[in-house]
């Protein structure tokens, strides 16, 4: 009996230590980890989903809801929320500077990654994603709950804004014109990239030109996830995928998409999982494609000319 027990205990200790260290260092946490930490006061679990209503109809027990289109953006300004708005949001969610913020969402963590970018931008250090998000949680048949937890508010103060995680139009233009040495990564579909279409099917065309920023390479965002359970591919695979297109971390990279939200997913991969110096250009094609006097690459020749 003892003979079996001792190695078993040893094994358990190793597993435990690995679990601890990986959860402390990795920007990803597993669904098991979240299930265990739901009531940990140092952890705040946040759902950011694309589709409104999915949180309310069932979410990971203990999670609070953040609505990306009202809580995280300042719509009339077409901007992310201001520092003051972010402080108010974080305070409302009872977050303190040493809270472990764990985000997850539908659509393979699309907007959860965007939420992670906003948290990082305002200097919150410990931000993680639940690997696989809602999809994996559901596939594992884990329980959902429908009540919204009442949270004791805190007083959150932003001390260290990370403006270096965000790229603005002038920087992107200077990269496109070769005045700044950085890579550009377009994560939209190949048809949007080539300019065959201005927007994906079913989405309003909000740019007057089609195509991409000159010099940008194309790796659709979904390439980074395992289709089966929505988890991220492993770092070696990811490195290879981006290296094949010339993005290997040797120089800074700027990612963009159509409205600047999907690209946060790839930003998370590059910056957080692979440790590259990545910036997200949230103005993206709806800003760049409409900007006056900037060059584009448009292999399909689709430019709005009126009738």
């Amino acid at each position: 009996m003892k003979k079996i027990l001792i190695p078993l205990l040893g094994l358990a200790a190793i597993v435990n230590v690995q679990g601890e260290t990986s959860s402390q260092k990795s920007p990803l946490v597993s669904t098991e980890w979240v299930a265990e930490k739901a009531s940990d006061p140092k952890v705040r679990i946040i759902e950011v989903s694309v589709e409104p209503g999915v949180y309310e109809q069932g979410h990971i027990p203990g999670a609070v809801n953040v609505r990306w289109h009202t809580d995280l953006v300042d719509n009339p300004r077409r901007d992310i929320i201001s520092k003051e708005q972010f402080e108010a949001l974080a305070s409302r969610l009872g977050i303190t500077p040493d809270t472990t913020v764990v985000l997850y969402g539908d659509n393979n963590n699309w907007f959860a990654a965007w939420g992670a970018w906003v948290f990082k931008l305002y200097g919150h250090d410990d931000v993680r994603l639940v690997d696989g998000g809602r999809k994996k949680w559901e596939l594992e048949k884990r329980p959902f709950e429908t009540t919204t937890p009442a949270v004791k508010p805190s007083k959150y103060v932003v001390t260290n804004e990370r403006k270096d995680l965000r790229a603005r139009l002038p920087e992107v233009v200077s990269i496109a014109e070769g005045r700044e040495n950085a890579a550009l990564l377009d994560i939209r579909s190949p048809d949007e990239y080539s300019g065959k279409v201005i927007a994906p099917p079913g989405v309003q065309e909000l740019a007057v030109r089609a195509g991409h920023v000159p010099g940008a390479v194309n790796v659709p965002w979904k390439t980074a996830v395992n289709d089966a359970d929505g988890t991220f591919k492993n770092p070696e695979e990811l490195k290879k995928i981006y290296a094949e297109k010339g993005v290997d971390g040797s120089k800074p990279v700027v990612v963009y998409c159509r409205i600047g939200e999907r690209s946060a997913h790839t930003w998370f991969v590059l910056n957080e999982l692979l440790g590259y110096n990545a910036r997200q250009y949230d103005g993206s094609w709806t800003e760049y494609g409409n900007a006056v006097g900037v060059p584009i690459d448009n292999p399909s020749g689709t430019v709005w000319t009126g009738k």
């Binding site: 409104p52 209503g53 949180y55 309310e56 609505r67 009202t70 429908t146 009540t147 919204t148 009442a150």
Partner: peptide, 15 residues
């Protein structure tokens, strides 16, 4: 009532 913590906060019940 389970979904919306404070109805005056400006969020409508989804859907």
């Amino acid at each position: 009532g389970a979904w919306i913590v404070d109805p005056s906060a400006g969020h409508l019940p989804p859907k």
